[in-house]
Structures are given as structure tokens and as C-alpha cells.
Nucleic acid binder design. Sequence first.
DNA 1: CTTGACATGCAAATAATTATCAAATACATT
DNA 2: AATGTATTTGATAATTATTTGCATGTCAAG
Lengths: 216, 216
Amino acid sequence: MDKQLRMTHQRELILDELRRGKTHPTADELYERIKKKLPRVSLATVYRNLEILSAAGLIKKLEISGRQKRFDWDPDDHDHVYCIQCQRVDNITLAAPVPQVESTHKQGYRITGRRVEFSGLCPKCVRQQEHHQAKGESSMSCPSCSASKLSDTQRQVLQALANTSEACGSKELAAATGLEAKQISCQITALKNKGYVDSPVRCKYAITDQGKQALE
Amino acid sequence: MDKQLRMTHQRELILDELRRGKTHPTADELYERIKKKLPRVSLATVYRNLEILSAAGLIKKLEISGRQKRFDWDPDDHDHVYCIQCQRVDNITLAAPVPQVESTHKQGYRITGRRVEFSGLCPKCVRQQEHHQAKGESSMSCPSCSASKLSDTQRQVLQALANTSEACGSKELAAATGLEAKQISCQITALKNKGYVDSPVRCKYAITDQGKQALE
DNA sequence: CTTGACATGCAAATAATTATCAAATACATT
DNA sequence: AATGTATTTGATAATTATTTGCATGTCAAG
């Protein structure tokens, strides 16, 4: 009845790589590493095997907050911290065991599992944040952190602003770009959020240094 | 500097519906409910507002194990249980506060958040499981639970089996379906897993009653 | 040396969420 | 009340992470 596990080359590599690294990689991080040793592996194989191996209890699947699942070489129960900035995951030890659920509050649940998960900034990201504060920048306006791409329309508007030395209103921009007046304000808003445009006077807009950089 | 929140009709409805229900719905569950009162809302609007409202601290986003995010009308800190079968989420109260992380194990993390999450079977699913056991069925073989769709190729093979009264081997099936002999065994395996085919004698296959039903 | 169970690679499918953008709406200011 | 502008919306495309279908490949047992 039981399915037997066959120890194929790729399965062995996956298990090996996971155990050797002693980190908590995502499926695709692991895939990148495996590919170096076995270039023809498929990402699907990595996913499939991580699933199979964790069902078999050889490894553990971590469903940490946020995005991708991560995998843990250590199938024994233990808790984790993750960095809300870089998504790194580490093990953590609590000062005392986690308390039980009050039986009066179980509400009829048959409880079988428990997960404790701390979050915060990892040492590297703490240092990075301190570096930003030292430079007097808010964490949002650091171009290397929040740089996002421009849409074609945004680029058009930004270009028009770059061409005028004076701050100008949305009507002038509409004329300059050939776009309808209505869409200008939408684009301006987006550009302001990105820090590429500011408004020195109400209803007048100008390109920022950051905005000029973004155009190149 | 702060963006101000505008209280639009849809935003009000979302907040209202969430607070009134006192459950922990997913974005699309909420969307279905909202649609009854405001048929033209967009799913994107629901997602956007749930995100905005939780960023503003009016509600809370729950990133429970597994699949969809769920949303909680109560922004205060509290813990949850979820059902591993039906995904339902409820509040839960611990017998004592969660212990701190041992400072020697913080590994340089600056910890800002904590999440405790129990899992198990909710009362409804506990009852359902008991009902299955009473009928002597393994939870996997209950047709109403594991019914899965047939692919075109599988249907073809199954149809061929239905047309013969005797159990037959893969070569005969290949002839009957016009498929290559090689693919037959793959399909047979899949069909056996679904309980639509069995093998009364080694290397001979027959359709099961379940398989006949599946063809209709 | 066949067979069948289990595996793999590739491509395509799926699920949940997020982004884009024109058009609509809300809100403060005339 | 009218206006101008920022914010929000609806519709839809795009993205991200993961899973599935299927043909083919491999291994171990008979």
C-alpha cells in the first residue's frame, strides 16, 4: 500500500544540498544551486521532491508569512524568526515552552499542530537601516531600495517636465505631451510617490534630481 | 505627508461586512458577499481596500499557513487556530503569555512581531471524519471527497476498458485506443489511483463500478 | 529482458494577488 | 453650487509561486 521512495540522483542531490547548506532556502533558490551540479533538472522536480520528502518526514516545509515556502533540513520541531525585509529565515529558541490552549477556548477543535513565528529585522538589514538613518534618508526614498520602473506614459510626462526649467501646471503638461488633461494628474501622483516629481507650489510640478536620474 | 483615506461606498461596505460577520474571510469570500449589495465592485477593489485598511490599522491581515490570506475585523493582537481540512480560522486564547526569545538566541535580530498559530480539525471536520471511520472507509477513497476529473486520454482508455467484458492487457488496450503502448501504462496507473480501474490478475486490467460512473 | 511502479523534464495550467490606466468620485477650496 | 485636484474604482493584463498532464526515462523484481 505504501509508496516506496526511490533514491534517485536528483532526490539525493536535493536532500544533500539542503542538509549541507543548513539554511532555509526556497524551492527556486535550491533549484539554482542544484542546477550547477545537474544542469538538466527541472524546477518541477525540485518542487515535487521537496513535497515528497517533507511528506515522508525527512525534511520540513515552512509556511512562513508572506511569499514563498521555505524548506528546513531539520524535521524536528523548532521555531523560527524571519526578516521582514530580506525574507531570510533562522531558527530561534524560546525561553520557555509555549503554553497550551485553554480548554475552554478550544471551541471543539482537535488540535494537532502549533507554530510560533517571530519577525523582525535580521542583523544585516538592521545595519542597512542604520546606514540610511545616518544619511538622513527615510527608508522609503532610498533609490536603491524603492527604485521602480516607469510606465511609458509616466516617462512621457517626466520627459516633458525635464524639458521645462520652471514648475508647470497640468494643463501645460497636457499640451506638451499631447495627453488628455485628465490622465496627467494620475501620472503625476504616481511620479510623486516614486519621488521623481515634487510640487514646489500648489498645482505646479517640477522634476526632482531623482526623476532626472530615472530618465537615463 | 500622510495620505488621507476617503470613505468611499465600497470601502465602507467592506469594512462593515467584515465587522458584522465576525469571521475571518478570504478576499474572495468577502468579494462574493459584497457583490450582493454592490454588483459592480471589482475583486481588485476588495483586495486593494483590504490591503489599505490593514496598513491603516483598521483591520488585520492574517497570513496563515497554506493558501489565501484571511482578514480579521479585530486589529488587536490575538492568536488563531485553523482547520487543516476546511481552512476555517478562529480565535484562540492561550493559558499564559508566549515566552520571550532567549536573548542569547536572538542572533542579532531586532524582533518586532510574533505570531502563534495552532492547527487541527474544526468541530465540523472532526464529525465528518468520524462519519467516514464509522463507514469503514479510509478518508482517501471516499468518492465524494477524492473525485477528480479525467483527462481526455484517460477517458479514452477507460472507455476502451468499459467496452470489453473481460480484463485485458495493455497491448489490447493500445490496439483498441490507437494510442501507443507506452502511454497506456501511465494512464492505467493514474486511473488505478483514482479507483476507476483495478487489476484482477497481474498485467490485466478491468474497469471498476466507480470507473463506470465516472464515464457518465 | 520485460513489466510495472515510480521519476523526470518540459510545457502548459492554475491560483492568488498585484499592477496599469482611463474614467469616476469625493473633498477641500473657491 | 462650481471647480480643481487627489484619490479611488473597474476592467483587465501581468506576475508570482506552484502544480499538473503527459511522454519518456529509469530501476528493481520477476
